[in-house]
Design a protein around this nucleic acid. Sequence first.
RNA 1: UGCCCGAUGGUGUAACGGUAGCACAGCAGACUCUGGAUCUGCUUGUCAUGGUUCAAAUCCAUGUCGGGCAGCCA
Length: 615
Amino acid sequence: MSDPKPNVPTAVPETGAAETSGIPRDFIRDLVAADLAAGRHSRIVTRFPPEPNGYLHIGHAKSICLNFGIAHDFGGHCNLRMDDTNPAKEDIEYVESITEDVLWLIRGWADHCLALKRKGVTPEATQVNGRPDFHLAGIAGAPSSSNPGSAAVEPFFASDYFEQIYLYAEQLILKGKAYVCDLNAEDTDKYRGAPDRPGTDSPFRDRSMEESLDLFRRMRAGEFPDGARTLRARINMAAPNVWLRDPVLYRIRHAEHHHTGGAWCLYPLYDFAHCLSDYLEGITHSICTLEFEVHRPLYNWILESLELPRALPHQREFARLNLTYTILSKRKLLQLVNENLVSGWNDPRMPTISGIRRRGVRANALRDFARGVGVTKFDGITDVAVLEHCIRTDLNPIAQRRLGVLRPLKVVLVNLPEGHVEDVRAVNNPEDESAGTRTVPLGRDLFIERDDFMETPPKGYFRLQPGGEVRLKYAGIIRCQELLKNAAGEVIEVRCTFDEGSRSGGPTANRKVKGTIHWVSAAHAITGEVRLYDRLFTVPEPDSDGDFKKHLNPHSLEVVSARLEPSLAQAIPDVRYQLERLGYFAVDADSAPGRLVLNRTITLKDSWARDAKKG
RNA sequence: UGCCCGAUGGUGUAACGGUAGCACAGCAGACUCUGGAUCUGCUUGUCAUGGUUCAAAUCCAUGUCGGGCAGCCA
């Protein structure tokens, strides 16, 4: 009818073009470059090793961008690995979401750097310089993003190395560098001492190598209950670094594991499993966050004690991301989910990668943000405005412009005949001429935004007001002649005259009027649910006083029934839209044929609202 | 009060002994059929005190402040 030749928009691909501003430099990349120059490695291998006990969030995105970015910049690859050594907390749901989020984030940018492994394979026994060794190579640039599910590949799993790690533990016992300890958890704690007070040796520390080996094998065989014994490294109970005070390497847990099932009742701890997983995969640079800095001596001690035949990986630490108006603790995010304070891990208000994605943010914006915040050892807090800026910068050049009214106010163009309909031509994207134009129907009865009319406006307001003129975007100039009010005195209809000559393209179209507003034709507009999201918290540092929940923003979600231009009936999930003057919007997964649901990804910058707030 | 790490405008980040730069935010203006976008200009910084040096944000010393570490979590 009104739009005979609809110009169907298509998703604008994310080009990875965010990488335009040259190779980013940071202290870790400098170290990698130096290692390469010194010939310590022929090829760089990094890894991203989340524990599958929650969804990935924007802090992980920083780490993913760093690890894949290094692989990308130096022509190496990055292993995606589940760091799954604690069966009690982990779940297959999380390995699936993590995999999906990583693939999404690197798509079109570092797919070729992603290394996965053939399903079910474990490290292969080999010989290096006549010495026994284990190694598990990944498949770099594996089927990855294009069809992750169908291919016979999967992420790496630390739990795939349990057999090798167990063997390394026996080696340590044989070398006299580990022993089985019968202390319970509480006593282990007491014997450890305190940071400013040395620990004391466990009474089992001098157990013979033979006895420890026998006990360790029986631990594996399931002869002892949970917590009965542990395997401990024999280092130094008086070490100033508490992580060197005979750390526990293995604990007994009779628990089903999401990946290894019931195969084990003995599970290695992070410190023992992580460095060895890195070694087994041939990782060259093991990059983690600052809190692991004190673990580095232990990481090195284990690897060096084992006298392994290949080059050892090196751990480096950087500062985790902190963001204003946001919490980034998996435990606390889980709390929001469990207490139904949000709709789920992928609630568009969550700082999770899946939430951010559902909100309508593209991977480009997140990568651009990660580059912007940089990589240092300074534990600072990044202003969320930087993220918001990256989102707008990404969306502005590609978003299809549309007209839609969130809170409708009726306007009647009194000098147009009853039943009048005409098509006006609208630009799809002023930033991109190739996006073309479309037509939008204009009738006698319209809706405009309630905010775009004020009966008694403050100074500096230049939208519609009694006796005043305003331009209807793409249509023409109208003048407010008369108001209709309800019994409560609220304006329910504004009657205006349409200046025919000011039609776009018309003789007086270029007449200056201060304001231009958006509108929809009442007879043609479709109705859609629009979810308006705002920051989840009301204060910059929600967690600073330990009670983040009391700072939840009660207005972080507002749902409105909006009136939208008819072309939006065919809104496409992969396409990003800008409702002019309102913000960027994306189709939500809750949409169904005939039931459109839009998420507001982010508002436009609004200097009027800012100035008005200042008074 | 033990060990480790850190400190550059409001925020984040560069400068690798030689002009303190960039981004975000803020402010002022131009332009605009999005109070969007774009463009222009501006304000604001090397934690402190000593030392080395022709020259220090950078090297050294001391101090101050901040963060991390005492799970059989990662």
